[in-house]
Simulated scan of single mutants.
Amino acid sequence: MVRRIPKHLVRKGMFVESVECTASEFSGRRFLIQSDETVRAILATSATYALINTQRSTIDIDADATLAAEERKQTQESVARSASALRDSFAAVRSGDLRVEMLGPVADEISDRIDAAPDVFLKVTRLKSKDEGTYVHSLAVSALMMRLARLLDYDDATVRELGVAGLLHDVGKLMVPNAILNKAGQLGAAEKNLVRGHPEIGYRLLKDLGTLSPLTLDITRFHHEVLDGSGYPLGLKAEQLSQEIRLSTVCDVFEALTSARPYKRAWTTRDALNWMFDRGHLFDKKLVLRLGSIFE
C-alpha cells in the first residue's frame, strides 16, 4: 500500500515512491532511504507530502507511534473542520443560499486525508456523535467515492464533482427529525417512509437551487437504488443505473455498515465487503472489489 505522509515524518528505511515537488528540487523516485542526508534533502524541498510504499519499506510504518499519532491528529482536525463547513452548507441549502464553489475545498481536504491514510480516516469518521452523524457520514462517503473514482481512472474534474455529490447526497435528511434518525429501536411504518423519502427531498432541494450538476442531482436522488430494482425512490434496475450511481451506492452502504448506529454495531471492513460482494443482485461486484483494494 502507498501512503501519503507529511514530509517531516520521513525516516530512514522508508521506500519513497515520490516526493511531491518538482524534479528540479528533488529528482529521486522509487528508492529506499538509507541515510540521514537523504532525509534532510527531502525536508529541504517545498513539498508538503511524500508517497511511501509500506510493503517495500524496511521499517514497520504502521508501528511508528509518532507517525500514527500525527496522522490521527491531522485527520481529526480535518474532519472537524470539514464537518463544520458541511453543516453550514446544509443550512445554506435549506435557506436556498448554497454556494457550491465552497464545497470544492472541503472535498479536496478530505480527499487528501483518505489518500494519506485510508484506515486512519475511516477510524476517525466512525467515531461520530449523534449530532454530527449525517455530516461525518457524508464526509466519509465523499472521500470513499473520490478514492474509488481515482482507482477507476476518472479525470480530476469528475473526481471532484463526485466528491461534492458525496458531500450533498444525504442533504434530504435535513427534513427528517433527529429523533427518528437516532432512534435506537425499530422504526414504525410512518417513520420508515419518512426516512426513505430523504433522497427525493434532497433532490428537490438541490434542483430548486439551479446550480448543481446533473451528476450531483442524480446521486442525491438515486444513491439508494440497487441493481435488482428493489431500491428507492423509483425502483430503478441495473441498466438504468450509471457507474457513478452504482459507485455512490457501494460507498454509502459500506460506510453505513462499518459505522456504529444507535440500532447496530459497527461491522469490520472485511465483513462489510464480503456481505456486499455476496449480494451481487444488489451491488456491482467489480466496484465492491475495487473498494476493498483501498484497504489492502
Rank of each mutant, 00 (worst) to 15 (best):
M14Q: 07
M14L: 08
S18I: 13
A23T: 15
F26W: 01
L43Y: 08
T45W: 07
A50M: 08
A68C: 03
E70I: 01
R72Q: 14
T75E: 07
Q76N: 12
R81S: 12
S82P: 01
P105C: 09
D108N: 13
I114C: 02
I114T: 07
A116H: 09
A117K: 03
F121M: 04
K123E: 15
L127C: 10
D131C: 05
L139Q: 07
A140L: 10
V141S: 03
A143K: 07
R150G: 13
D155Y: 00
K173Q: 14
L174Y: 06
L181A: 02
G188W: 00
A189I: 08
V195P: 00
G197S: 15
H198V: 06
P199Q: 08
I201R: 05
R204M: 11
L205T: 04
K207Y: 11
L209Q: 10
S213W: 03
P214T: 05
I219Q: 00
H223N: 02
G235R: 13
I245M: 08
S248T: 11
V250F: 03
V250K: 01
D252K: 05
F254T: 08
L257H: 08
R270S: 15
W275I: 05
R279Q: 14
F283C: 02
K285G: 06
K285D: 06
L291K: 02
F295V: 01
E296P: 04
